[in-house]
Design a protein around this nucleic acid. Structure first.
Length: 493
RNA sequence: GGCGCAUUCGUCUAGUGGUUAGGACAUAGCCCUCUCAAGGCUAAAACAGGGGUUCAAGUCCCCUAUGCGCUACCA
C-alpha cells in the first residue's frame, strides 16, 4: 500500500512558519517512504477563509519546493460530509440538536463557574420523533451532534510520542454539522482522511486533544485509523507560541525579507528533527529515506532568527554569483537601486555581477545587497566617513592616490574609450602591486598603501577586498573618484 | 478549573542503562588580514527538583514544579 500524507491548511492567513514546518515534515515523510503528498484546503469556515490566502499559501509552498500529488478543497465536498452525517443520523450514532447558541453559551458559563468540565448536557439526545418533526416543520435551525459514550477509554499510538490515552467522559456530544450545513473541523477532517485513504497524519500538537474525538469518528464511520504524529509548537523568544508580535511569522514575510527558500526549509527541518551524524546544512531534496517520523523531537522549539540568518548566509555562499544576481534583482528594483530597464543594460548588470561576487561573504540576507552596492553605482563619492578623512590626513596618502591615478590613466591610454578597459580582479591586483613597487622607496605598505586607495574610490574604510572593489567600480569611475578625492585633499586637508 | 503533552548549555539539538555528556547558532579570545566579512582554532556554557528501580540513570518508574496546548455552530 502506498503511504498517503496530507497537509491541510485553512486559508485564514498566509503560510505561517509553524504550518510550513508541518507541510515540510509531511512532504519529507512522503518522499522518504515513496508515498503521496496531498494538499487539502480546509476552507469550511466561510467567514474567515478566502481565495487570496489560499493563493498565498499555494505560492509559498511552491516557493519552498514542496510540490503535491493531489489537491482538494473542502468547500467543494460539502455534499460528502452531509452524506456521511446522514448515515450517522440513520444509524442513531448522531442526532439533531435544536439548542440555541445562547443556551449553549449560558450552559458553558455556568459549568465553568462551578468548576465542572465544559461539555454539552445532551439535552437533545432524547428528543422524541414527534418533537423533532415539529421543530423541523417550524423551520428551527439545528446542528448535528455525534453521540459520545461515557466510560470509554480512547487509546491511540502517536508515532512521535508513543501511546496516548483519553477518557471519553471529558468529551461531550460534539457538533459535526453546523446549522448552516457545513461540517465542523473534526468531522470534515475525519471524513476526508478516511475517504482519501490517508495513512499518516502529521500535524501540530494543538490537534492532539482533537485526535480523541477523531478516533471515535473514524471508528463510527468504519474507516481504518491512520498513523498519527503530533509536532511540538514553535515558540517565540519569550517561550510563548510564535505569533505576529514576535515579528515576521509567515513564509511570505521571510521571502520578502531576503531569505532563501533553501535556508528556510533547511532551518525549519532542523526544528524538532535532525538528520544525525552532526549534519546540519543540507537541501530538503537530499534527505531521502533518512527522515523518520519516530525521530521527531517531542519538546517545543524556540524560533531563533540568528540561526536562520546563519543558514541563509551558508546557502547564499553556496550559490554561484550568477544565481545570486538573479535572486538579488527584485530587491534592487524594490529599493530603486536599479530600474527594470537596467536588467537589459550590460554595463549595469556587469557591475551588479561583480558587486555580488565582492559582497557575497558579507550578506546575511538578499535584502542587504542593495544597501551595500548603492554607493558603488554612483559616479562620485557622496560622503567621506570620519575614519576615511583620518586616512587622507596621513602624509603619504596623497602620493599613493596620485600613483594609483597615474597607473590607471596610463593603462587607460591604450584604449580609444576608457569604457572598453576591462578592469577585472586580476588586473586590479596587478595595479595595486605596481603602486606597491613604486612606493617601495618610501616604505609605504600594508595599511598605508591599501587604505588610501580604498578611501580614494569609496570614501570609506570598510568594504570587501580592494581588487574586487576596484573591479566593480570600473576604470572610468575609479579615475573620476580618485580625482575627486585628490581635489578633496587639496581643499580640506 | 478539567484533560493532555512536554522539560539536556542563553537557543536548536546528539544521546535510547556504563560518555571527560558531543555538535551547531549566539557570546568572548586568538589566527588570517588594508578594513568589514567569510574561514580556522580555542574558551565559557546544560541533564528542572525530589523520591524510587538497578552494581550503575540524562536515559526506566512515581511525585512536585514550570511551560505549552485543548476545553467553540474556528481550524
Amino acid at each position: 500500500m502506498v503511504p498517503r500524507f496530507r497537509f491541510a491548511p485553512s486559508p485564514t492567513g498566509g503560510l505561517h512558519i509553524g504550518t510550513a514546518r508541518t507541510a515540510l515534515f509531511n512532504w519529507l515523510a512522503a518522499r522518504g517512504m515513496n508515498g503521496k503528498f496531498i494538499l487539502r484546503i480546509e476552507d469550511t469556515d466561510v467567514k474567515r477563509s478566502n481565495r487570496e490566502h489560499e493563493k498565498s499559501i499555494v505560492n509559498d509552498l511552491k516557493w519552498l519546493g514542496l510540490g503535491w500529488d493531489e489537491f482538494y478543497r473542502q468547500s467543494e465536498r460539502i455534499k460528502k460530509y452531509q452524506e456521511f452525517a446522514g448515515r450517522l443520523l440513520k444509524e442513531k450514532k448522531a442526532y439533531r440538536c435544536f439548542c440555541s447558541p445562547a443556551r449553549l453559551e449560558k450552559l458553558r458559563a455556568s459549568q465553568y463557574a462551578s468548576g465542572k468540565i465544559s461539555k454539552y448536557d445532551n439535552r437533545c439526545r432524547s428528543l422524541g420523533e414527534d418533537e423533532i418533526k415539529k421543530n423541523l416543520s417550524e423551520g428551527k435551525r439545528f446542528t448535528i451532534r455525534f453521540k459520545v459514550d461515557d466510560d470509554n477509554e480512547i487509546i491511540f499510538n502517536d508515532l512521535a510520542r508513543g501511546k496516548i490515552r483519553f477518557k471519553s467522559d471529558v468529551i461531550g456530544d460534539f457538533i459535526i454539522i453546523k446549522s448552516d450545513g457545513t461540517p465542523s473541523y473534526n468531522f470534515a477532517v475525519v471524513v476526508d482522511d478516511g475517504d482519501m485513504k490517508i495513512t499518516h497524519v502529521i500535524r501540530g500538537e494543538d490537534h492532539l486533544t482533537n485526535t480523541a474525538r477523531q478516533v471515535l469518528l473514524f471508528k463510527s464511520l468504519g474507516f481504518n485509523l491512520p498513523y498519527f504524529a503530533h509536532l511540538s509548537m514553535i515558540l517565540g523568544e519569550d517561550g510563548s507560541k510564535l505569533s505576529k508580535r514576535h515579528g515576521a511569522t509567515t513564509i511570505t514575510q521571510f521571502r520578502e525579507g531576503g531569505y532563501l527558500a533553501e535556508a528556510l526549509a533547511n532551518y525549519l527541518s532542523m526544528l524538532s528533527w535532525s538528520p544525525g551524524e552532526g549534519r546540519e546544512v543540507f537541501g530538503i531534496n537530499d534527505v531521502g529515506g533518512r527522515f523518520k517520523i519516530s525521530d521527531i523531537s517531542k519538546s517545543p522549539a524556540v524560533f531563533d532568527i540568528n540561526k536562520l540568518k546563519w543558514f541563509n548566509g551558508i546557502h547564499m555562499r553556496r550559490k554561484t554569483a550568477g544565481e545570486l544576481v538573479e535572486l538579488c534583482l527584485p530587491f534592487l528594483i524594490r529599493e530603486k537601486v536599479i530600474s527594470k530597464r537596467d536588467i537589459k543594460n550590460k554595463a549595469v548588470m556587469d557591475k551588479i555581477y561583480r558587486g555580488v561576487k565582492s559582497f557575497k561573504d558579507n550578506l546575511k540576507v538578499l535584502s542587504d545587497f542593495p544597501g551595500y552596492i548603492k554607493d558603488y553605482l554612483t559616479e562620485k563619492i557622496t560622503k567621506y566617513s570620519g575614519e576615511a578623512v583620518e586616512i587622507l590626513r596621513v602624509g603619504t596618502s596623497k602620493i599613493v592616490i596620485e600613483n594609483f591615478l597615474e597607473e590607471l590613466e596610463n593603462e587607460g591610454k591604450t584604449f580609444d574609450n576608457i569604457k572598453d578597459m576591462d578592469l577585472n580582479e586580476e588586473k586590479s591586483k596587478n595595479l595595486i602591486n605596481g603602486i606597491k613597487e613604486k612606493s617601495k622607496g618610501l616604505k609605504i605598505k600594508g595599511k598605508y598603501l591599501y587604505m588610501p586607495i580604498r578611501v580614494s574610490v569609496t570614501g570609506k574604510t570598510h568594504g570587501p577586498e580592494l581588487p574586487g572593489v576596484i573591479s566593480m567600480l570600473g576604470a572610468e569611475t575609479c579615475i573620476q573618484r580618485a580625482r575627486q578625492t585628490l581635489e578633496y585633499i587639496k581643499r580640506n586637508i
